[in-house]
């Protein structure tokens, strides 16, 4: 047996973990069909770890859902498969290309992949009858998220109404929904980017290796370093060169930039994050840079 804490004090990381486990169990107990939104990024991996702990030694009592944009980093998909195999969970993959082929989503050449992702997600929710979706959103990421509840209600159209949010008190979560509605659940709402890294370090869990420093052929676009890939052809005037980089988030390969970095271990990443000058979104997410209210707009439409 391990001896716990003689002074009955829990470290902040242990408190965050306990709160997240509590949320996972609460949802599993009260919702008919929860599902965990798995992007393969570090936040969703931390969620998966917490879910593993919440139900151990039983298996995680719900499936994973991934939206396949067709633009994912291969390294991310590899890590995803390792996790899924180790935990023995089922994963539902909803692909944007299938949704386009089936006419669920219209690709008019003007709509961004991001918008189509939302439509594909909402369709997958409807088709599978999911009633609760775990997401890896954190309140420190962005101003609009700072006011979002742990249980965030979505109407039949998947929309979020920031003015109609339910009060959320103590650790008493209200999971009531009507038919056709669903709840987005954010079990790591109170974690910061540093907490996530501390936890990955402490738990020694596998994350995609693109988070660590490596050599990559990149080019500069809109002030960001983008990966060379056939999915994202270079435009006139853009030159590709090899640099030592790492990614701070794992999103759409055509929109997610990397940063020059030699951080190749978790302690080095933690050092780097502690003195970072830009938020992870501001630095490397093209999709969030369009306007200050960009995130809020996309959330209202049903994006995470």
């Amino acid at each position: 047996m391990t001896n716990t804490h003689v002074d009955y004090q829990l470290s902040q990381l242990d408190q965050l973990e306990a709160e997240s486990i509590h949320i996972f169990r609460e949802v599993a107990a009260e919702f008919e069909k929860p599902v965990l939104m798995f992007s393969g990024g570090k936040d969703s991996i931390v969620m998966l770890r917490l879910a593993e702990k919440a139900f151990y030694p039983a298996k995680i009592p719900f499936q994973l859902l991934q939206i396949d944009t067709g633009l994912d980093f291969p390294e991310v998909l590899e890590t995803r498969d390792n996790w899924v195999n180790r935990l023995g969970v089922r994963i539902v993959v909803a692909s944007i290309d299938d949704a386009i082929a089936n006419g669920v989503v219209i690709d008019d050449g003007k709509t961004s992949r991001n918008r189509m992702q939302t439509a594909t997600l909402l369709d997958a929710i409807e088709e599978n009858g999911f009633t609760a979706l775990f997401g890896g959103g954190r309140r420190d990421e962005e101003k609009a998220r700072a006011k979002e509840r742990v249980y965030s209600h979505r109407d039949e159209f998947g929309q979020w109404d920031p003015k109609m949010q339910r009060p959320e008190l103590w650790s008493l979560y209200n999971g009531r929904i009507h038919a056709g509605e669903h709840m987005r659940i954010f079990p790591i709402s109170n974690w910061t980017e540093l907490d996530v890294w501390d936890y990955i370090g402490r738990e020694q869990i596998e994350i995609p290796n693109i988070y660590f420093s490596h050599q990559r052929r990149v080019f500069v676009r809109d002030g960001m370093l983008m990966s060379e890939t056939p999915l994202n052809p270079t435009r006139e005037g853009e030159t590709v060169e090899e640099r030592t980089v790492r990614f701070r988030t794992c999103g759409d390969i055509t929109l997610t930039g990397c940063v020059e970095s030699t951080a190749s271990t978790i302690p080095e990443i933690i050092d780097e994050v502690s003195i970072a000058k830009l938020t992870e979104r501001g630095a490397t997410r093209g999709d969030d840079r369009f306007s200050e209210a960009a995130m809020e707009d996309r959330k209202k439409e049903g994006y995470f």
Binding site: Q9, L13, R202, Q204, N209
Partner: peptide, 18 residues
Amino acid sequence: MSDSTQSAEPRATNMDLL
């Protein structure tokens, strides 16, 4: 590329919460 499961010395293991 480095091994993705490196061990880390947590920053302040007993950092508490207010």
